Amino acid sequence: MKKLLYISFFTLSSVATAQDALFNSGGFQLHDNGAIGFHTNWINTAPFVAEQGLVGFYGDNPVQVLGNSNPTLYDLELFAPGGVFLGNTININNNANFIAGNLLSSLNNNTVYLNFMDNAFFTGEDDLRKVSGIAAITNKRIFSFPVGDVSMLRPLTLSSENTNAFASCKYLFQNPSNPFSIEETFDTQEKIRDIGEISEREFWVLTSTQPSRVTINWNTRSELFNLANSVDDIILVGWSKVNAQWVIIGNSALSGDVDQGFLTSETFVPDDYAALTFGTVPLPTDTFAVNNPTLGNYFVSPNADGINDVLIFDALDPTAPNEVYIYNRFGQRVFYKENYTNEFAGFSNIDNFVVGRDKGLPAGIYYYTVSLPQQELNYQGFFYLKD
């Protein structure tokens, strides 16, 4: 990363300056350790290619990048507390260094964005310095988009099965049913019945043709505590372009509580969905589920002292059909029982888990899932197994 440079002017035969803007009307290149700094608007109407060097935006006043030709930069430095507004796309070949200020673009114009090319990356992003508009990638498989609104960074991490020729992302701290920055609307009441509530606080718009997973987080500003009873109620939902309604995309990982946390989605194709946000599972109407929102976490010590010798789910009706699965911390299944009636006493009953089976499972944290097919309910939790 190059040192911060303050550059008041740049002179070149193909560049003419005016009082309120710098015009590039003839193609030129920036090589090696060359640098150019903008303290005013930049109007680019001819090719600008920086194979090396630094282009920076500085100053407290807002700066605009305009014109009909998209510049390609090597290193970009943003030290502009007043913000830099993109009227045309900027391509980055190496590093975008966020020092101060936001890089903004219209959320309603999908043809203008900050584009991170094959090997490009970024540094320094936080709530006060990020992309408050559209960020894009070219020829990347995994990328964390440094997007947010004007006051908060709300990144989305994309992990695709194949390289994306192009993908883009934007974040809106707006009600999907009535956003004011884009023309599309996504009515939060139009949803499949397996969805309970849908966030009216925020959403992301992601484009990609590749099967992918995404990771997003929530915080107190998301106000999911108004929608979900527990973190396990939170799910990723997407506005289906085909069905014109919100559907469940689902989670492959989930962590945190209703105040803050993150989820990673199941695999899906982003281009099938016009928007992504948080939803919840419906509130249960089954009596058992209402009385038992969770089966709890447990302690098991199979030492024959008559206390916690086996795993007992206190709220589980032993006469009702069920399936119990137990996993170790590596995700390996170590126990399974249909119609479980307190059989687990620290030993594996899985054929392919044979190492030291007669000695019992090692002490540590284990995870369980309980399925109740008649009630169409699933529970999960953990317990500590002591030698």
Rank of each mutant, 00 (worst) to 15 (best):
L103T: 09
E197Q: 12
A228P: 05
V214F: 03
G34E: 11
K191S: 03
L73E: 00
S240D: 14
I43V: 15
D127H: 10
D271Q: 12
F262T: 15
N352F: 11
L224R: 01
S151G: 10
N109W: 02
K3H: 12
S25T: 12
S252I: 02
A275R: 02
F299S: 13
C169L: 04
P284A: 12
R141G: 08
L224F: 09
L78S: 05
R154T: 06
S168Y: 08
S13P: 07
D387F: 05
A275V: 06
L4C: 04
D60S: 13
N108K: 05
I137V: 14
V63M: 07
E338V: 05
N88F: 02
S181T: 12
N108R: 06
N303Y: 07
L76Y: 06
I249L: 15
S159W: 01
N328I: 01
F28R: 05
G34M: 01
F98E: 00
F186C: 07
G82Y: 08
T188Y: 02
F122C: 02
G133H: 03
I195R: 06
F166D: 03
A50K: 01
A274L: 08
T188L: 04
Y171C: 08
R221I: 03
A96I: 02
F313L: 11
A274Y: 01
F28A: 13
Q189C: 04
G37Y: 02
S132L: 00
F57H: 03
P302V: 03
E323W: 00
A35G: 08
F85S: 15
P321S: 14
N297F: 03
G82P: 11
Y368M: 09
V147Q: 08
A16R: 10
D309C: 05
L227D: 09
S69V: 11
T123D: 13
S265Q: 06
D126S: 12
D233C: 05
W42P: 00
